[in-house]
Design a protein around this nucleic acid. Structure first.
Lengths: 143, 143
DNA sequence: GCCGCTCTCTTGACTGATTCCAGAAAGCGG
DNA sequence: CCGCTTTCTGGAATCAGTCAAGAGAGCGGC
């Protein structure tokens, strides 16, 4: 498991100031993939009870801008953050319970990045959201 | 161009009551693809100045449930509605100006529906959002 | 064509996530 | 250790979307 020291180095590497709230938020995101902002605030406050939600929002934005975390916004849900970055993976969202799981890109690389007709757009990223039922909900529903 | 009569028939076919607000909303969505809720309210009020935003939200939900329109929620934007349904197409969103364009699925059918590892999920839909710069913003930025 | 049932629309208040602001506090380089 | 600059705190504001109650309107049967 990553330690506060690792987080410190990650922050420094991104040219960000190292503060207690930042280390805590970074640790929370690493520890809870796909956590929504509220959960992150809760996790952070277990270490630092006095952090304001404001600080968390601000830190998350800074981390996102620095590329240390990625922000995902599944339809019908609030913003979530994850720490797997740079590997072009996508997400499955359960229609019933909202569970999110990581999925590697269909062909192992980035086939979805190429649209058949790009309308003159210069596309630099593609995000894929699969919708369906997670194993649990699927079982419950069919039984 | 579709007429109020066509909308009436579409509503009846979907077993929905035909009301003035519904015809107007359906027409607005057909006329303005990718419009956000506010724009739709505005468009509807050009015909029926007295409709409440509530009615529009309600109608949009009814139309979505009936499968007459599709709701899309690009990250960083409010909900939008479109009338192209059932053809598995996706969207390009301009990072700079927010413009949205339709894109047919990369391989002409539905390759993106198959995830390499579905974690036991039963996937029934995939939504792809391409991110990039539209021609206008691309030109402006590079010049 | 009229009646009544039921669904839909209007009005207005409310929620919950996110953002804006100003001042206090804390990290970093020298 | 100092001072500058960024960051954090606390509180208020915004904005999309939702909830609720009562008035109004479509549809099916007569």
């Amino acid at each position: 498991m990553a330690t506060a020291l690792d987080f410190t180095q990650m922050l420094r590497a991104a040219a960000l100031r190292v503060t207690r709230p930042r280390v805590a938020v970074l640790g929370a995101v690493l520890a809870h993939p796909h956590a929504d902002t509220d959960s992150i605030i809760g996790a952070v406050r277990r270490d630092l009870p006095e952090v304001s939600h404001q600080a968390v929002y601000d830190v998350l934005r800074a981390l996102t801008a620095a590329g240390l975390v990625r922000r995902i916004q599944p339809p019908g849900s609030v913003a979530r953050y994850e720490s797997r970055i740079g590997d072009n993976h996508h997400h499955v969202v359960c229609r019933s319970c909202g569970l999110i799981a990581d999925v590697d890109c269909a062909a192992g690389e980035a086939p979805c990045l190429t649209a058949s007709d790009d309308h003159g757009f210069s596309i630099d990223e593609a995000e894929v959201v699969y919708r369906g039922l997670c194993p649990d909900c699927s079982t419950t529903r069919s039984s």
